[in-house]
Nucleic acid binder design. Structure first.
Lengths: 304, 304
DNA sequence: TTAATGTCTTTTATCGTGAAAAAACAGTTT
DNA sequence: AAACTGTTTTTTCACGATAAAAGACATTAA
C-alpha cells in the first residue's frame, strides 16, 4: 500500500475531520475564507471539503448558504491514519526503529532501505533526515550514508546542559517582564490548569506532558531569542518519545513534576530572581534525573 | 546550461584537481585505497582519476605501477567552478540575493523561482532551504512558502547572545583541561600562526578569518557538547559572508582581533578562570560590535 | 596470507513529472 | 465598496528514474 501515488491528500482529510466536529456546534457554516482561516487551509481545500459534505448529505450548499442537514456519524470521518503527514509517518517509523533496540551507536542509516521499509519515496526520507539531523542524533558523512550517534547517556547530558543554560536565562528574563505583560495572564491560566490536574491526578496523569510543554515554551519565549525558542523543539521531541517509552512510575513522576511546576510558577510570580533561579534549578535537576534513569547504560565509548 | 543533467561529477573533478597537486611531489602514486583515503573519495572515483591521467599522458598506469610522466600544466586542471557542490552553488546564489539588498524581512521565498533562477531542480533547493533553516534566517509556513526573517540587528543580537554563553562556557572548560591534553599543542601552534600573521599583517590580513574560525572551533570543542559545537556552524556561516561583504577597515579590525586572540590564548594558557573570562568577554564584545556596525539599521519592526 | 587490482552491485544525488494545495484573478452578491 | 463565490494559475510535495559515487565481492599479485 501507499506506492505509486504522487501526493496524499492528508491536508484535506484532516481538515475535513476537523470541519465535521465544527458541524455539531452550528446550524450553518461561515464563508469559505473564514472556514479556511479557522481550519488553517486554503480556500481550495475548503471547497473540496464542502463539496464532499454536500455529496454525503451533511450540508446543503448553495453559494453562501451552507446549511447543516444532519449530525456527522462516526463513519463520516476519515480514518485517523490517513490524516497524518508523510513527515509524521516517517518520524514515527524512524523513532520506533531507534527506540526498539538494536540501534547501536555508530550504525549506519540507509536512505533507500528506510524508504522501502516505510513505503515512501527516497526524497521524503532524505528531507526528513536533514530536518531530523538538528536534533543531534544522526550525522551525515559527505557523499555517503548517515551515521546514528545513538540515544545515549552522553546525548542526554549534552541536551540537558543546554536546556539548563537556556531555561535559567529565560526564566530570569520572564521574571523581569513588566507587570502589564500578557504573559502573566498566560501564567495564571497555566497555574490554574496545574491545580485542576493536581486534583484529578489519579485519572488524568498522562495529560501532564502537554501542560509541561506549554509552560516551558511560555518561559522560553521570554528570552526573545529564536535560538533558545527553537532549541525547545529538540527537548520537546526527546521528551515526547521518552514519555511514550518510559511508563515506569509515570503517575508519581508527574505528580512530583506538577508540584515543582507550581513552585516554579510561584517563584516567577514573586519576581524574585533568587527564588526563580532556585525553583528552576530544582525542577530541571529532577527532569534530567528522570531522563537519565530511562537510558540504558552502555559500555563507555572511546573518545576519539 | 546545466539543465537536463542528472548529477554533476564535481566530486571527481575536485579530487582530480587535488590529485594533480600531489603529482608535483612524487615520482609515483600510491595504491588505489591509499589514494582514496588521501583524497577522501571512493576507489571508484580514484580509478576514474587515474584513467584520465593515463589518457592525458600524465602518468603511465599498469596495475600497481603508476609512474608520473610529466608535471601537470595549468590546462590539466578542471575549472574551479566545475568543482563546486550543488549545495555550495545554491548557498552562494541565495546569500548573494539576500545580501544584495532588496531582501526585506517578511518577504516570501519561492522554491520554484529560486530553482529556475539558479538553474537547478526544485529538490535541491528544498533540501538547501531545510538545511539552511537552522541558521534562523528563514522559516517555513506549513504547506506553504518560506518566509525570510532577515539579516537584522535583532538576528545579530540573538546570535551573539548565544555565542557568548557558549564560548564563555567552552573557554572555562578548555582552561580546566589537563596539561597532557593534546589541545595545548594545538593552541601553541595556533598562537605561533597568530604571531606570524601579526608580523605579515600588511600583506596577508585577509588570512585572518580562517585562523579565527580554527581558534574558536578548538575552544568550542572543549565543551564536549555537540549542540555547542554545532552552533559554531551558524556563527561561521554568518561571519563568512560578513567578511566578504563588509571590507571597511578590514586590516585594522583584523589587527585588533589578532591582538585580542593572543591575549585570549595567553589567558587560556594561564588556566586562570578569571583571566580567561575577561579575555573572552573582551574579544566577543568587539566581535559583536564589528558585526553590529555592518548591519544597516532598519525601521524598528512591531512586536507581534 | 595480506593487500592490492578488477568487476559488479548498491546507494546517493539530482532531475523531470504530476497530483494536492495554495494563491491569484475575475466575476457576483450584499 | 467590501466581501463573497467561481475559475485559473502557480507552487509545493512526493514519486520514479538515472548518472555519479560508494561499497562489496572476486580475483590476482607480492
Amino acid at each position: 500500500m501507499g506506492q505509486g501515488m504522487s501526493k496524499s491528500n492528508n491536508v484535506y482529510k484532516d481538515a475535513y475531520n476537523r470541519c465535521l466536529r465544527l458541524l455539531d456546534e452550528t446550524r450553518s457554516l461561515p464563508s469559505e475564507p473564514e472556514l479556511g482561516a479557522l481550519l488553517g487551509v486554503s480556500r481550495t481545500t475548503v471547497r473540496s471539503i464542502l463539496a464532499r459534505m454536500e455529496e454525503t448529505g451533511l450540508i446543503a450548499w448553495n453559494k453562501r448558504a451552507k446549511t447543516v442537514l444532519r449530525d456527522p456519524r462516526p463513519d463520516d470521518f476519515f480514518p485517523e491514519e490517513e490524516t497524518d503527514t508523510l513527515a509524521e509517518i516517517i518520524e514515527r517509523s524512524f523513532m520506533r526503529r531507534l527506540l526498539a533496540g538494536g540501534a547501536e551507536a555508530g550504525m549506519q542509516i540507509n536512505e533507500l532501505e528506510l524508504a522501502r521499509e516505510i513505503g515512501v519515496g527516497t526524497t521524503s526520507v532524505r528531507e526528513f533526515l536533514i530536518r531530523f539531523s538538528r536534533f543531534g542524533l544522526i550525522e551525515k558523512r559527505r557523499n555517503s550514508h548517515w551515521v546514528l550517534k545513538g540515544f545515549t547517556r552522553a546525548f542526554a547530558l549534552e541536551l540537558t546542559e543546554i536546556r539548563e543554560m537556556f531555561e535559567l536565562r529565560s526564566a530570569a528574563a520572564f521574571a523581569a517582564l513588566p507587570p502589564d505583560s500578557p504573559v502573566w495572564g498566560d501564567l495564571d491560566r497555566l497555574e490554574e490548569e496545574h491545580r485542576v490536574l493536581q486534583r484529578e491526578i489519579a485519572t488524568r496523569f498522562n495529560a501532564f506532558s502537554e501542560l509541561d510543554e506549554r509552560l516551558h515554551r511560555l518561559i522560553h519565549r521570554a528570552s526573545h531569542n529564536r535560538f533558545i525558542v527553537d532549541f525547545y523543539d529538540v527537548i520537546a521531541m526527546i521528551f515526547h518519545y521518552h514519555y511514550q517509552w518510559n511508563k515506569a512510575q509515570e503517575r508519581e513522576r508527574n505528580e512530583v513534576a506538577i508540584g515543582e511546576h507550581l513552585a516554579y510558577i510561584e517563584a516567577l510570580k514573586s519576581r524574585d530572581l533568587g527564588k526563580v533561579d532556585a525553583a528552576c534549578r530544582k525542577h530541571l535537576k529532577s527532569a534530567r534525573q528522570t531522563l537519565l534513569t530511562s537510558i540504558p547504560e552502555s559500555r563507555p565509548s572511546q573518545k576519539s
